[in-house]
Simulated scan of single mutants.
Amino acid sequence: MRRKLAVLAVAVFSLLGLSVAPASAAGGDFAPPGCFGERYGILFGQGVSVSCFPGEGYGYRVIAHCSNGSAFWFVVGDFVPYGFGPAVAECSGALLVPARVYAYEVDEI
């Protein structure tokens, strides 16, 4: 019985280690020059809001790189013309596996 409990404990600790590893390797905390970004929490997830000063092109959008455990995906925000507010992208997860923004990038259009 002790052996089974020990194996179960090792399995749970290794599972928790796998789910924490991508969040601890987070990068991309800085917005590109001319822009400033802010991360914020949502229910079971995280979002990023980026505002940029006028640059080349007509506007911009933010692309969030999301993760929860071992899953990775992208969320593309809506197009925002310069001077009309921030571009927003939100990573949504679930109760036991909340999503995080581990990096983001700004795409000028």
Score class of each variant (00 low, 15 high):
G45R: 04
L95H: 14
G69V: 02
V101N: 00
C91S: 08
G57F: 07
V48E: 02
G59M: 09
F13W: 13
A21L: 11
C91L: 06
V106I: 13
C52M: 07
V50Y: 00
A64M: 00
K4S: 14
V48A: 05
F44D: 05
G57R: 04
F84D: 06
V101I: 06
A64T: 02
Y102V: 14
L18C: 11
V76Q: 10
G93H: 02
S67T: 15
V106Y: 04
G85S: 06
F84Q: 09
A23Q: 11
A94K: 13
P86E: 15
G17H: 02
A99S: 06
H65A: 09
E38V: 13
C66G: 05
C52P: 04
V101W: 02
R3H: 12
A87K: 05
G47Y: 03
Y60E: 03
F74K: 14
G93A: 06
F44M: 03
A25V: 00
F84E: 13
F44P: 03
I42Q: 05
L15F: 07
G27D: 14
R2K: 10
E90I: 03
A21T: 10
Y60S: 05
P54I: 00
G34Q: 06
Y60W: 08
Q46K: 00
A71R: 15
A87Y: 01
M1I: 10
G41L: 11
L18S: 06
F84V: 07
E56N: 13
R2G: 15
G34K: 05
S24P: 00
A71G: 09
L43W: 09
A25S: 11
D29M: 12
G28Q: 09
G83Q: 03
A26D: 03
A21I: 10
H65S: 14
V106P: 01
G41R: 14
S14R: 07
I109Y: 14
